[in-house]
Amino acid sequence: MTAPPGNLADRPATPADVLGLDAGDPPHDLLSQLLRSVRLSGERMSAYAPPRTFSIGFAQAGSLHLIEEGEVTVRIDASTHVEQVSRGDVVLLPRGDAHHIGDTAERGAPEAARWLCGTFTIGDPQASHLLSSLPAMIILRGGGGPALEGLDVARRMLLVEMQSPSQGSAVMVARILDLIFIQILRAWAAGPDPEPNWLAGALDPQIGPALSAIHRDPGHEWTVEDLARACCLSRSAFAERFAARVGKPPATYLAHVRLDAAIGLLRDTTHPIALIAKSVGYTSEPAFSRAFKHHYGMPPARWRRDMRSR
């Protein structure tokens, strides 16, 4: 874990351009900001209708499964836990964990299963803490509600493009997958007792403004008092609610965001290390290098050399 700065106030940086954010985003639309920074995009869609007894492995890639008929089991390869899902259920694996989908033969003669599977690509794997803080598997059970009604519309659009492909169908499928991914994240985070992470914080009306401020200007000399004021909370109430919703204190979260911003600048620019350190909110190059090495296991200059030699 990145060691948080000694205090939240280091040095101001240029504002939203550190992360390339669009100043036209609606206020506090953190989900749009973060998905843009991760550069997640839908890739392709496939239909599965295997024999009644089966086990199909899916490699490490962001995956979405829309269960059309029957019942199947889903198991993350690194875990022994098995989830059973059925018609109308939606399964999202946002972190790209390798997994298997199989029949339910242990429950008797399984009904023939049929489902759609979509995959996603992550354009910026360095934004690791954004994805790693999400559950390995998110399941929305079929049963109605506005969220699933919207997903059903998207599913029907996918079927049209898959059954009658025409010019532009590949792009249509990719964009619909993007929409489904966002709909699932929204519905999961708005549900009862979501796990603490940035998404739960982003959708919390009392914490969302603080996260949005941090991501829009990670190099600003933020203090807990500043962020609490933006959320109309006392310092203690804000710190407690932030940790409960996000899963880490404000200073630790800020440190992660600053280092993510630094990764982008190291990769995409030729700026000197000292300038990057200042841009993302560190008072000195040595302080930045220590924090960077603690998190990534090597100094920023070496990380940049290794990245460019690949």
Rank of each mutant, 00 (worst) to 15 (best):
R52S: 10
G208T: 08
L8I: 08
S166M: 11
Y296F: 15
D22I: 07
T104S: 09
Q183P: 03
A230N: 06
P4N: 08
Q126H: 15
A228T: 05
I176E: 00
W303S: 04
S309G: 09
S289E: 15
R216M: 11
F292Y: 13
G297L: 08
E149H: 12
G150Y: 01
R310D: 00
A187L: 03
F181W: 12
I180F: 01
A9E: 04
I67L: 08
P125W: 00
E240C: 06
S63H: 09
R114F: 06
A244E: 14
P196F: 12
T14E: 05
P205M: 07
L93N: 01
I273P: 00
A136C: 12
A13Q: 06
H28A: 12
I101V: 13
G281N: 02
A230K: 14
A136H: 06
H65I: 03
L159Q: 11
E149F: 05
T53K: 08
P4G: 03
P51G: 07
D193Y: 05
V74I: 11
L19S: 01
V72L: 08
A213W: 01
R44K: 06
Q84M: 12
Y48V: 03
L116P: 01
T80E: 12
R156M: 13
A109T: 12
T270V: 11
S79H: 07
G24E: 07
A200P: 01
V18I: 13
M172R: 10
Y296C: 01
P286R: 13
C232E: 14
E71L: 09
S133T: 15
A23N: 15
R155E: 12
S32G: 13
P94A: 03
G247R: 06
M137S: 06
F181G: 03
D217P: 00
G247S: 05
R141Q: 13
D97M: 04
I182L: 06
H100G: 09
L93C: 08
A127F: 02
H295D: 11
P249L: 07
A261P: 00
I101H: 02
A9Y: 03
V85Q: 05
L64M: 05
G42F: 01
Y253N: 03
F242A: 08
D77F: 03
R310T: 07
S55T: 12
F58E: 02
R216N: 07
T80L: 09
L8A: 03
I122K: 08
L131S: 07
A170F: 06
E71A: 10
Y48P: 00
F181L: 13
P192S: 09
S79A: 08
A23V: 11
E69Q: 14
A136F: 05
G24I: 04
S279A: 14
D29G: 12
V72S: 01
P196R: 15
A287S: 13
Y48K: 04
H129C: 14
L40V: 14
G70V: 02
P205L: 13
R302G: 00
G145M: 13
I56N: 08
L34F: 04
E195L: 10
G142N: 06
A61I: 00
M137Q: 13
G6K: 12
Q206P: 02
R75L: 10
M137H: 04
S212K: 04
E161H: 15
P196M: 11
R258C: 06
S37D: 09
Q167A: 15
F54L: 04
D25V: 04
I76D: 12
I182W: 02
M298T: 14
P286C: 08
Q33G: 09
L254W: 03
H295M: 15
V246F: 03
M298N: 02
I139P: 03
